[in-house]
């Protein structure tokens, strides 16, 4: 073994990552080479004097306190309340500002159909759309594993029953080109929701079912029944019905309504939305 080869293995050796013949060969070389012995001694000294004394910086006391409170809330399933009172709102505020700017300049990134919504409800709707799109991306990219898969809507409803404190009523699959791939319990803006991943003609569609309380807390309600937001290129449709609320995310506009409706049903969408243009 040459000195260069030996020295290239010093880190491995001291990290305990060398074994067997490689380790024996290096030790033999060290035994016979005073220069490498000297360097190895310096390496050990460097480690002892500096690296072995390093440890992680202590977490700030405020963080420690919050984590302890969160840990206490986790088993009690009281996480939503905890997060509502502790989560940093800056990203949401930032998102709202961005949405506001884009709306003012009339940009094409975010188009919003807020016509009959008040300002507060508009902001809430945007936040809900943002959260829905984020979950949709994770769900459809496989980053959020399904809790249940390959089940009929009826069986999936049964699965959610007892696990969520609201009823999950899923539409039957009215078309052959529509598949329910899987579902999971997820979170939308700190609220526990049923997240369903569909494919319609091979296009991903996510349906989030949430408690009506969440929808009301966001200030959403009344008309229009179907509230529509285009966010980051995704079409988000939000509505309430039969004691729960829904958020439907896709890239196929009103075509995604086929998850719930037959093509010949007439729905109340604002003019200009590509709601049923391609149905």
């Amino acid at each position: 073994m040459t000195c260069d080869v030996a020295r290239a293995k010093f880190f491995l050796y001291l990290d305990g990552e060398l074994a067997g013949e490689e380790q024996a060969a290096l030790e033999t070389h060290l035994y016979t080479c005073p220069d490498c012995q000297r360097l190895m001694h310096l390496e050990r000294t460097f480690r002892t004097r500096y690296l072995d004394r390093l440890g992680p910086d202590p977490a700030p006391e405020a963080v420690r306190r919050e984590v302890v409170r969160l840990l206490e809330a986790l088993p009690a399933r009281d996480v939503r309340a905890w997060l509502r009172s502790h989560r940093r709102p800056s990203m949401i505020r930032l998102g709202t500002v961005v949405v506001g700017i884009v709306l003012v300049v009339g940009g094409g990134v975010i188009g919003v159909a807020f016509r009959r919504l008040g300002n507060g409800a508009s902001v809430s709707l945007t936040q809900l759309a943002e959260a829905s799109v984020e979950q949709h991306q994770k769900l459809t990219r496989g980053l959020l594993p399904y809790d249940v898969r390959e089940m009929s809507p009826t069986r999936m409803e049964q699965w959610f029953k007892g696990r969520l404190d609201f009823n999950v009523n899923l539409p039957e699959l009215p078309r052959k080109n529509l598949a329910l791939l899987g579902g999971r319990i997820s979170y939308l803006r700190d609220s526990q929701v049923a997240a369903l991943h569909y494919q319609l003609d091979g296009k991903d569609v996510s349906l989030f079912v949430m408690p009506l309380e969440t929808y009301r807390q966001l200030g959403l309600g009344g008309r229009p029944k179907f509230k529509i937001v285009t966010y980051q290129g995704y079409d988000v449709i939000v509505w309430a019905s039969h004691g729960v609320a829904y958020s439907l995310v896709s890239e196929i506009g009103g075509q995604s309504c086929l998850v719930c409706h037959s093509p010949d049903e007439r729905l109340d969408f604002p003019t200009g939305f590509r709601a049923h243009g391609r149905l």
Binding site: A8, K9, L42, T45, R53
Partner: peptide, 22 residues
Amino acid sequence: AASVVPLDPEQILIRNLTVEHV
């Protein structure tokens, strides 16, 4: 990794730095 030889730490040891420096 095999193509890299560690820089000699002798000069650092001579400088007598603190752990905080590192």
